[in-house]
């Protein structure tokens, strides 16, 4: 294997598979054999390759302190992600990365934080939460707002509970459609933002989810008085190469793979509302 070839995956065995919801699972990969491990920053992603099937960009959802393993929370929606779901501990897949920009977690010190996640969008935000939890006292109010399609689609339910009870975080969850057992909120995630605790002038906001959700989230955050520069958005576009060669992930002048996926809002605002860009 040519270490200088950025297009060549390296083998990594699956250590564990956790089932999160009906169609979402988390793979724990052992990357200790890869020189340098897989040191990553919260918000970055990897390209995961299933032998003979193909490759997909998947955000890293584990703890950045651990460079020997990588956690990926994945929704089985396409050919590659369905094949990823069939992997078992001991199976080997190919990995490239980490790639892309990161959430500016260092800038959160001394400030309030608002995290707004839609569905699987919570996965690339979990490394942020781990980072904040490690030195909880360094931050002000921390708000986690999660939206899911239904109660059965809520991710990391056990951890949400722990973050709420032990992490001194305000964790709020809403679903689009409840079920008979659901006692929580029903509605869109932006409704949760009315209840966030923060000083808008000293708050950092991170959001990841469907584009329509992020559009309304940013609008609401701005209404709350949070400056555009303090809002960070993670974008999704088609990626084949992750290194800026294939052209698929262009969003206006930006390559989501290498300029993003995390952008400060002012950088993408001029292009965000343009249809079919």
């Amino acid at each position: 294997m040519d270490a200088s070839d950025p297009l060549c995956p390296r083998p990594a065995p699956v250590r564990a598979v956790h089932h999160e919801t009906a169609d979402v699972f988390t793979l724990i990969l052992d990357v200790s054999a890869i020189p340098g491990g897989a040191a990553f920053a919260p918000g970055q992603f990897m390209m995961l390759y299933v032998f003979g099937v193909g490759e997909a960009p998947i955000s890293i959802s584990g703890d950045a302190r651990d460079s020997r393993t990588l956690a990926h929370t994945i929704r089985a929606v396409g050919g590659v992600t369905r094949a990823l779901r069939n992997l078992r501990p001991g199976d080997v897949l190919g990995v490239r990365g980490p790639y892309g920009s990161a959430w500016p977690v260092a800038a959160a010190r001394g400030r309030d934080v608002v995290i707004v996640a839609g569905g699987i969008g919570l996965a690339p935000l979990r490394p942020v939460i781990y980072h904040l939890l490690r030195r909880r006292e360094d931050y002000g109010h921390i708000n986690i707002c999660c939206g899911a399609r239904s109660p059965g689609d809520i991710l990391y339910t056990g951890e949400l509970q722990r973050w709420r009870e032990e992490g001194d975080m305000q964790v709020m969850v809403t679903v689009d459609h409840g079920d008979p057992g659901w006692r929580g909120q029903v509605g869109v995630v932006t409704e949760l933002l009315d209840r966030v605790r923060c000083d808008p002038a000293n708050t950092l906001a991170f959001t990841c989810g469907p584009e329509i959700m992020m559009r309304f989230t940013v609008r609401k955050l701005r209404e709350l008085g949070i400056a555009g520069e303090a809002i960070h958005v993670s974008m999704e576009r088609n990626m084949h190469c992750a290194v800026g060669f294939c052209g698929h992930c262009q969003f206006g002048p930006l390559f989501v793979c290498k300029d993003g996926p995390v952008f400060p809002w002012p950088r993408i605002a001029p292009f965000f509302g343009i249809r079919e860009l």
Partner: peptide, 14 residues
């Protein structure tokens, strides 16, 4: 690149 299956997974060659 090419990948070849082996007992312990697969090997990739640029």
């Amino acid at each position: 690149w090419k990948a070849r299956r082996r007992d312990d997974g697969f090997r990739i060659e640029s």
